[in-house]
Write a protein that binds this DNA or RNA. Sequence first.
DNA 1: CAGAATGAAAC
DNA 2: GTTTCATTCTG
Length: 898
Amino acid sequence: MTKAVADSSSSLIQHFHSFFVRHGSTMKGGGRGKEPPVAGEVTGKRPKRKCLQWHPLLSKKALDFSEEEEEEDEEELEKQPELCGQDQGLQQVQCGSTTEEAEEDSNEQRARRPMNAFLLFCKRHRSLVRQEHPRLDNRGATKILADWWAVLEPKEKQKYTDMAKEYKDAFMKANPGYKWCPTTSKPLKSPSCQPVSSSPRKKVWSFSSNSTKDSTTAKKVPKTDSMPQLNFAMADPTKMGGLSMLLLAGEHALTNREIPSSTKPSLPDTASEGNSFPGDEEEMLSGTIPNRVPDITESRVKAAPSPQAESSLSAAPEGKPCRQSALFQLAEMCLASEAGKMEPVECEPEDSCPTASLQQTSGRPEGKEQAADRDDCPPSPHTSALVPSLSSVTSTSTDAIQPQLSSQNTRVKNKSKKKEGAKSNDNDEIPCSAKKIIKKCSNAESNVDSVFSTIEAVAKGAWKDTEEKPKKKIQSSLSAGNSGGPKKKSKPRVKTPVKEREEEMEEDSGQCGQYSSSEVEMKEEMADASPKAEAEEASIGSSELQGSAAEAHQSPGSSSPAKLKEEDKGKERSSDGTCDSNPENHGSRKSERSCKGALYKTLVSEGMLTSLRANIDRGKRGAFRGSDHDANWSDDSWTVSQIGPNNPKKLKKSKSKDESSQGLGKLEEEFERKFNSLPQYSPMTFDKKGTTVAKKKKTDSPVVPEEVSKAGKGPSPSQKKTSFHKIVRKHKHKKEKPGAVDKVVQSDSSMLDSASKAKSCAPVAITCPDVQGPASMEMLVGSQKRKARKTKITHLVRTADGSVSPAEEDKTRDLNQEEDKKPLPQNLCNDKGCYSHPRGAEEAERSTGPPELPAFFSLAALAEVAAMENVHRGQRGLAENQKKELGQTPVLISCADQ
DNA sequence: CAGAATGAAAC
DNA sequence: GTTTCATTCTG
């Protein structure tokens, strides 16, 4: 026994560690080189990943929440999470099934923090930003996003805020005890929350604590049942021993099957929870359980036989082959090595199986279909059946798709890991399963191995068993449910055939996914989309021509009904924006927005060099985008455009997204749906907003068009205004504060020129800083609001001639800002004077004669270029400094002059 | 892996 | 007030 126990323990450990190992070996080994989650985990640095990402679904379960506004999302979402969360260790693992990561985390498994509004916003708009500024790196994109966010109207922001809140609420429900910082468990603060668990951060998360403490509370919730149990199991290794014992005993019994009964009874809650699931037990299970990881399921199944599991047995069996003893299964697997179907059933703890199961479930998100539900293993066939469109698509474009997948796999990141798992599974499933099978077979060969495996399984099962056997079943079902991957794909495809085509062509599904996210909306969108898609294609075709062609399209597009809900404004604006229409303008426009170093680069590349560079760098995509963008952006339909255009990047993103979504499964989908439903705003919109926002606020509605049009085409003055607005906007946002901003904005909107001047004095200060900010600020490390971090400080240090203490740095920074502000204000007052600063320059360009490069601008650009080069060389510090200096200088000068 | 941003939570 | 960490992804 002891031995067995030891073994079991070891096995368990492995499971836990498996994260590391597996990921590392499997995942990475498999395909992805990029991220070695394992290593990361091991290092511990990134606890984050470890944490499972929380899905609304999770909360759902736990919550009951039906009440919540978002019920749909949450509910569905909740399910999974709950399982995972609750089970924690096991669940995690299980959950992991959904997401491999989770598995790894098993122990820790902390959930990830829910995203805040800003992050949601970023997530939703980052792609747009990137499209607009292909060259821009994420950092730059983030900055822009921040700008946008700052500009975003409260109303619009509110949506994100609400979503974030909901998300958070759901999350908290799901994880009552969840603490953002694990610290709670450990008082140690500084290190952060490290944890309890060996691994510093990750694990710590609340879960563990929750499990114990919260578990009761939180768990209280019906569903969670499994959680608590799991927790226990996780916690004690000793249990393992017990398990092992059980196993032994169980083995005899293995053969036995469990009781057929469905354990549902225990589930009721879950069932109840699963609103969507009507009555089918199976469905319910699948629906509810999504969380469960396949592994668990399997283990469970195996375990079921075990004595303890008796109840579990019942669950396990559900009739499927799964029920048989693990050994038996193994044997079967060996036999069936190839049979894809079999695989899933047998799947071991490994990801693949789970995924497979998940997929199936995902296939039927709602679980309506009972048939599948039960089987964890359900074969892909179901999925295919479920998603006809998808299947069709795949069939058609399988080639394309696979490549994508592969690429995706390669890309995996931390997150992607999870997702990856899901996706990979999809694709790989078979292969993986085969592999697994093989492995198992080998195992089977040696009794010992088989036993060992069995033990493990039992152990797992035992844990669960402890809590609820029924749940096991559920879990299994859940696991099945989890796989959302397929679903998502299916959805997108379903949504719009056209899109599908595009996807195929483009390869990227991500966009589609996003779009598609909202099924409901989809219909509408589809209608719109088709036209858009056409437009896009056309635009693509004419990518080079972009400007003209795009515009032409745009106009039509604008006419097309865009559903963009709120975005209408944006559309209009965008259309207006299009006014800018000139390619140059576009470029300038962009640059204006960003103003920051990266932007400058972009500007230089795009604006200055124009297409040449851009095309080269970007490749067709870039060109395409650029054109599209402009066109699309300007158009109301930019949203559509998003969907349409695929970029390599996008692909990646999209993939990742898809993956993630897939992994989540239905629940996730819904969540995504909501997420998708969140309005995206075109860059134009923001620009306009910058300008118009004030108006909007005033009028609230449609301010944009006029101004926009003006800005775009309008006389120089108007343009200036826009730029000015933008500046203001930035100021505002930098300075922030809505109130102030608003005021400022209004002034702008109303009219900066005369009246504003007066105000400008006050505002100016702000604006100036902004202006400078962009140039110099960007160089400056942190956001204005936040102090520079240590790391950042380092940067700053350079300023000090050598030694700059942080404080000094700050001071310096402040001084700079102040200086900037002061001078700038003057500039602002002057209006034109201000332009000296990068943005101003840009604007100046537009408005005035040398549209292309104002002196300042050119200087700045040069500086940047130089800086860039330097950077490449590796002399970043210098480069940056130079940049800063350059940037600042001009500004100062201008100010001074004025 | 750092880092850019914002926000929320925990100290 | 400060520190973490959530997302994304380039360099």
